[in-house]
Structure formats: C-alpha cells, structure tokens
Design a protein around this nucleic acid. Sequence first.
RNA 1: CCAGUCGGCUGGACGGCCGCUGUCGUAAGACAGAGGAAAGUCCGGGCUCCAUGGAGAUACGGUGCCGGAUAACGUCCGGCGGGGGUGACCUCAGGGAAAGCGCCACAGAGAUAGAACCGCCUUGGCCUCGGCCACGGUAAGGGUGAAAAGGUGCGGUAAGAGCGCACCGGACCUCCAGCAAUGGAGGUCGCAUGGCAAGCCCCACCGGGAGCAAAACCGAAUAGGGGUGACGAGAUGCAAGCAAUUGCAUCGGGCCUGUCUUCCAGGCUGUCACCCGGGUUGGUUGCUAGAGGCGAUUGGUAACAAUCGUCCCAGAGGAAUGGCCGUCACGUGCAGGUGCAAGCCUGCGCCAUACAGAACCCGGCUUACAGGCCGACUGGCAUU
RNA 2: UGGGGGAUAGUUCAACGGUAGAACUACCGACUCUGACUCGGUCAAUCUUGGUUCGAAUCCAGGUCCCCCAG
Length: 144
Amino acid sequence: MTGQIGGSVGASARKASSTIFGRLKQRSEFLAAAKGTRLHEAAFSLQARTRTDETDTRGRRFGLTVTKKTGNSVERNRIRRRLREALRENMRGSLIESPACDYVIVARRECLSIGFADLTQTLGKTLARIDQRLARKPKIPTAD
RNA sequence: CCAGUCGGCUGGACGGCCGCUGUCGUAAGACAGAGGAAAGUCCGGGCUCCAUGGAGAUACGGUGCCGGAUAACGUCCGGCGGGGGUGACCUCAGGGAAAGCGCCACAGAGAUAGAACCGCCUUGGCCUCGGCCACGGUAAGGGUGAAAAGGUGCGGUAAGAGCGCACCGGACCUCCAGCAAUGGAGGUCGCAUGGCAAGCCCCACCGGGAGCAAAACCGAAUAGGGGUGACGAGAUGCAAGCAAUUGCAUCGGGCCUGUCUUCCAGGCUGUCACCCGGGUUGGUUGCUAGAGGCGAUUGGUAACAAUCGUCCCAGAGGAAUGGCCGUCACGUGCAGGUGCAAGCCUGCGCCAUACAGAACCCGGCUUACAGGCCGACUGGCAUU
RNA sequence: UGGGGGAUAGUUCAACGGUAGAACUACCGACUCUGACUCGGUCAAUCUUGGUUCGAAUCCAGGUCCCCCAG
C-alpha cells in the first residue's frame, strides 16, 4: 500500500479531511483491531489497537461493523449512520493530537432505540477510557 | 343507509442548523440525490464475451383450450368450456386414456375382456309339506367401495333385463354460426369399452453457453505465456553399413475441447536461442438518453400501437441519499368536558408513520405493506 | 451471480400415493436393601399455504428457514 496507490491515498485523504477521521476498509485491519483492547457497552462494543508502524501519520482511523444478525438492511443502514454522526460529534476539534490508533465499533441493536445524545455521550466516554488503556500498555505483542 | 365485488392512486408536508455523494464552477457556491415493491431472484429480453462450420440423431429442460398484444415471456387482453356464488364477480397446468406400459390399498362375490355372495324366478328330484338339493334364468333389491357396466318413470315378464316407450345423458353423421376454441339444430344408434398423464409416455411448439466479479484499457516485482528458427522424437519402406547407427520418402498415432455420432475445427503431446508480451491486487471505462417519463390526438371492445408536443429524472463502490430540532396534517394511548349514542373539543404522551434501501438496464410474476383517497358495479332496506 | 440439496417425536434417521416406524431421551412400572444394567409399557412429530387425486409425508406450484458447490 505505497507509491502506486498514491491516487487512492489522495482520494482517501480528501475523504478524511471532510469526515475528520480515516476509515478501515481491509479485512486484515479489522482482524488486527479485534486482537486489541475491548470495552463493552449496551449499544456497542469498542475494539482498539495502536499501530506499530512509526512512519504512519494517518492518525485515528475508525471501522464500523454491523452484522446481519442485528436487523434488515434498513436498520443496519440506520445504525451505521447514527454511529457515524455520533463519531463526527465527538471527533470535532480533536484532530490535532490524534494518536495512530485503529478503532472498530461493533454495533448492537440498542443503537436503534437509545437517544442520540446518550449515544454520543457514551461513545465519547468509552473512547476516552480506551485511550487511557492504550496509553497504559502502548505496545501490542502481536505483529500486524 | 347497510353489506359486498372489482380496479386505480397515495404512501407524510414545510422550515432551520450540521454533514455525505455526484455534476458545473478558479473560488464562493448553485443544482440534483431510493421504491411501489428498490425485496425474493421465479421467468423473458437488451448488453458483453465465447462458441458462431455442414448434416443428422437422441437426450434434457420448459410451455400446453382458442384468438390476439408484445422485443420476448410461464406476462397481458378478449373469447370458449368446467366449478362456485342470489348477484356484481371469483376460480381452473383446461392437449391426448379404443399408441403402449404401469397403478387403483383396505373393504367387497366381483376393480377393467371382469362379474351370481346374499337374494328373486321357472323346471326337476327328495321328504318330516315348507324346507333341502340339482340344472338353468336373472344385474330389479341388499351389502362393499372414491369408482360396480347409462339415469328416472311407465309398460312388460316366471323373475328380470334398452326388452319396449317418454324425458335426460352419451357416441357417430350432416348442416348452420364463428378465424378458432366452441355452440346450436336435425338425423342415426338402445347405446359394453372406468379413473389417474401435477406416474412413465405420445403429440405440438420453444430453447447454443456464460454472466457487469461480463468485457475493454492503463499497469510494479515475481512465476508462467505466445511467435520464429535450429536440433530431436512414433510407425512403415528404401539405401549405406558386419553391426550399433545414419540418411531420404511416406504415413500418422495418443490426449483434451466443441452435449452425442460422422466429418470438421482448435489445442497439447521435447530442448535451446532470439523476439513479443503482461494473471491477480489497484485505477479508468462499462455506468446510465432508455423497448424513458408526461400530455394530447387517432386506430382498436381491450391488452396495445402510431403520430405530435414537451422534459432530462440517483449513479454509490466495505457501498452516498443522513443526524438533530420546530410547526402542521394524520394515526393512536391516557385523562377531562359535552352528548342518549355515534361523535366533537381540550391537555399530555408516542424511537410520532406500514412494508422496506438502488448496485448494468428494462418487461413481467411472486411476496410484504399502517393509514388515507377515488372510480365502476352488485344485493338488501327505507323514501320519493 | 449461477447451480444443487434438505426440513418427519426432545435428538439422529426410516417409510411403493393407502394405519407415519426404529434407536436414544423423558415418564410410569417390574427386578434390587438402594442405584446402575436389564425387561415391559406410555407420551410425543410430517416447516407453511394452496392444488392434483377417492386418498398426499410422498406428486405439483408459492412462501419461510437451513446447508453445500463453483466463481
């Protein structure tokens, strides 16, 4: 994922500038994040890991997982959009000192029923907690 | 007014703040941005690539009353026939059972060249004189079954029987109406010849394969690929040579693919040298102007077609089309008021809207769907 | 995207179109001082909606769910 993908990086950088944060797309990235630290809430589970590559300057990246068990496509779309909006609320202004971390949010059905203010608040608190935990043990033994 | 049948439409509206995708623009910004089913993927096409050759056969799959519409269809329209409903209307895979094979359990005497179990009757015999036996006749009655050899009635008879007659139902022939399915009329025959083909099958018609992850272009490393040339290699014959072997000529063989067969076509069946070239990941195209929408006119019973005018109406790609708030409409729950009641008004609440999210594009089918609106028609009641 | 298969007792499987059966499980009883083993008995089912047929688990359509294969 170097050199040749320059055009693609440009595209994703443009996307990152507009969405404040980067995205996870590859299956291997999701699997790597699943081996990291986890926290569980009623509406979602949060998985996170610190990227070990020092030259990587892309900052925080997020991935969303909404499995087919949670509902039909309308409900899954709605969950994804609510979570994305909640992330956008939380990440506003915190772009500058962003650690090189990958986060994966695994959604549950409760994302549909709880209020949007609650969802945003809970997500912010959980992100702060998992950042503390990652700072406590910065290196993850498993290589990516 | 009540009950019902059929068809069509709609499927929240307006505004504010913060975002996402595309197009245009130097920029600011402007404009556009899910559905009737986008769903299931059940059919039919377009499009792209491959095979596209000649002949034939056998499979396989599908469709199945008749006529029409259509690019095509298993779709739609009209008609016919069977069944249901008082009716509007609904429903039907609705060709062929004397081409053949197969099956029809249990029950029953008997289940498809197959009939006498009980019963009824004539004659004869026996005797205890109202019973038994024998030879026959008989499908009216009983019983079994989903189905028992046309049905009902009258006559007839020893008892019966299409044995005779009437009506109904069949079969065949002729005529008439209709493009046809089919319907009607007349005549002849007293009329043995089930059911199942959504069992095998027969008949008629249709069907090349794969799918946008198709396909094209750009394109890094590595492995592999193609072309040309040289050499080598199977069988047979000839020549040279004691022989190993060598040279020349001719003929091919094996495997795979094209559904099968016969031809036929293509590929593979060694090494080296030179040249060409570039799987997958990634990017771009394909990608939305189309059997397009809307309106009018004309033709047609209709499905639909033709002509004219007008409009441009999503293009994402781990997948945009959103989040929050306010007002209103509608719905619903609770409480209160009014009213005989239906209902109406006020306040508060609802994740405040059913089913559900484009993935190349169209025509259908099927399935899901809160609430609302419109039209046509039928039956009943009341009034005039 | 294309193709194939399946759904039967609580579980695993059978069943020519003609009374849905077996094993394990559960329950009851017998045997035993008690339990296990063994023996006997009982309960329990055709995914769903229609159609063909005298009759459907079986045949044919529509739906729901699950599994497998190829790319």
